[in-house]
Nucleic acid binder design. Structure first.
Lengths: 147, 147
DNA sequence: TACAGATAGTAAGTATACTGTCAATATGAA
DNA sequence: TTCATATTGACAGTATACTTACTATCTGTA
């Protein structure tokens, strides 16, 4: 009999859903969802990326990124600007409001992490992070020093 | 600077997405998705549950379960039968085809697990399972011996 | 230069997953 | 028995996340 309750896939789905829900609750006041937060977080690291670059960095489908950006733009946190070299592409740039929220939202993420991992100690969280990164699998390397 | 790349939430999302994609690939020939497989797996354990019972066992929203059942019914793997005691409810019952597929699909799930966890040894997988179950958090107890 | 093929973004379609609302039906207390 | 309340499933709406197909544009090559 297949033990669905203890299968890695099922447990991953449920752990992910819980993490999503907890994070959602923390950032709810700002009218954001966890994937929208993640996209902002990539822009805090490097502003002005194109949609494809965001898609690759975040391992999110191109068309999904388009929708996320639509909603974040509607929310006034970022804007599509013309790309100076490529008329097909946009540069996705944070607005002042999008930049300002970094501190507040990072704090939400910290609280969220604490709530989700309250049943694990620091070493376990570290180990979990390591194992999830392995599960995540092969990522293309984007910023390879030209080889 | 918030490190989204190494946040548990982000890694959970990516590990989950990978597990989903790999499992999808394995069961693709049977026109199933991972959540549909999970629902079948609960029915292999106990046939004839109602939608609410499936929703609770699988920690899936009631309306999501409805859609999953729609698609599995359309696919001929289960059927809604009248509930003998409750005219509001259905008993969700596997068809012969739904029962027959248990062996084949369980094998797909095994292959999928091996592919996903190929970077981890058996002890690590066990530890991962334990930690994900903790992350998953408090579950209501459904089959409590009446207290 | 011209053109074949690649790339950026959009759009439509499908499948989760949630929220809220509703009608039909059950249930328990007065 | 009656009536307030709860439960079951459906439906509509929103947000991911993917696929395929399409347009516009760019790029490398002949």
């Amino acid at each position: 009999m297949y033990d669905i309750e203890n299968s890695i896939g099922f447990l991953l789905a449920k752990a992910y859903q819980r993490a999503w829900a907890v994070m959602k609750e923390e950032i709810e006041p700002y009218d954001l969802t966890p994937p929208q937060f993640a996209l902002l977080a990539f822009l805090w690291q490097q502003d002005g990326l194109t949609q494809v670059e965001l898609s690759e960095k975040g391992q999110i489908d191109r068309s999904t990124v388009g929708g996320l950006i639509d909603r974040l733009e509607r929310n006034g946190l970022l804007e599509r600007r013309q790309h100076p070299q490529d008329r097909r592409a946009y540069r996705i740039c944070l607005t002042e409001q999008g930049k300002t929220l970094e501190k507040t939202l990072s704090a939400c993420a910290e609280r969220s992490l604490k709530r989700i991992t309250s049943g694990l100690n620091d070493d376990e969280v570290k180990e979990l992070r390591r194992m999830l990164d392995i599960l995540r699998g092969e990522r293309r390397v984007y910023e390879l020093p030209s080889c």
